[in-house]
Structure formats: structure tokens, C-alpha cells
């Protein structure tokens, strides 16, 4: 069974917060992954300069890789199957663009700024996430 990671969660969270702080105080931009990813791939015309977005999006997997190379056991289980991945990816792509952000932009950056838009967005996606998991479980799609 999976035990909660209290200290690793807190430490990793602080690193994420420092990353977002560096982005804000260094470049004046929000470290919002969905917006930066859309910008980096050329699927959005507004937002951060392209070079900055590309640099952040390239750095993201590099950081994860470095942690794994440093010897930490990085677990990522994918028991859900390709169809679920495709449907959920499409919904995440559409939803984060319509809603102008995801867990990083609205969650980490917006909540700490006490932004009304981000508070409403975060409460909404947390609630719909909880409902979506509960319904999936009830229909026998637990994993």
C-alpha cells in the first residue's frame, strides 16, 4: 500500500514554491505549466516570450531526471490504460486553456497571491476532481 509522504511532500513542495518564486522575481511571470506549455509548443500567441516558455518546459523533465539519476526512487505507476490517458489528457488540455491555468498557475501561484480567480478555479477543479474520482469508482473504474 502507498503510505503518505509527509516530509518528502513538504520538501518537494518547498522546491516547487522556490521554482515559482524564482520565475516571478526573476522574470516577472507566473510559473503556470499549462500556459507555458501551450506557449512553448506554439499553440498560444500570448503570454511569456517563446524562449522563456521553451526553457521552462525543457527544464521540467530535466529536473525530474536529475532526481532519479541522483539515486532517489521516483515512482510513477500507470495502471489506467491508454483510452483513459487519451480522454483525461484531452480534458486537461481543454480545461486548463479555457480556465487559464492548472495546479501550478492557479494552485501554487494564484492561491499564495490570494487571487479571486485562482481561488475559485482551484476550488472548482479540486471539487470536480473529487467528484470525477468518486463517480469513476462507483462505475467500477477504480485503479
Amino acid at each position: 500500500m502507498t503510505e503518505p509522504l509527509v516530509w518528502q511532500g513538504l520538501m518537494g513542495g518547498v522546491l516547487i514554491g522556490l521554482a515559482a518564486a524564482l520565475m516571478l522575481l526573476g522574470t516577472g511571470r507566473i510559473a503556470g505549466v499549462s500556459g507555458l506549455a501551450a506557449r512553448a509548443t506554439g499553440l498560444s500567441d500570448s503570454g511569456a516570450p517563446r524562449s522563456l516558455a521553451v526553457a521552462f518546459i525543457v527544464g521540467l523533465p530535466m529536473g525530474a531526471l536529475l532526481v532519479a539519476l541522483a539515486g532517489q526512487d521516483v515512482v510513477a505507476r500507470f495502471p489506467m490504460g491508454t483510452t483513459t490517458l487519451l480522454i483525461s489528457g484531452l480534458l486537461v488540455g481543454i480545461g486548463t486553456r479555457l480556465g487559464s491555468g492548472c495546479t501550478s498557475g492557479h494552485g501554487v501561484c494564484g492561491l499564495s497571491r490570494l487571487s479571486k480567480r485562482s481561488i475559485v478555479a482551484t476550488v472548482t477543479f479540486m471539487a470536480s476532481g473529487v467528484v470525477s474520482v468518486a463517480i469513476a469508482n462507483a462505475w467500477g473504474f477504480a485503479w
Binding site: G12, L15, A19, G59, M62
Partner: peptide, 11 residues
Amino acid sequence: SGALFGAGLAI
């Protein structure tokens, strides 16, 4: 910033 973010997610 991206690398720190990715490291934080992994840890």
C-alpha cells in the same frame, strides 16, 4: 525554474 519545479515534483 523549470528544473527546480521538476525536481520538486519528483521528490
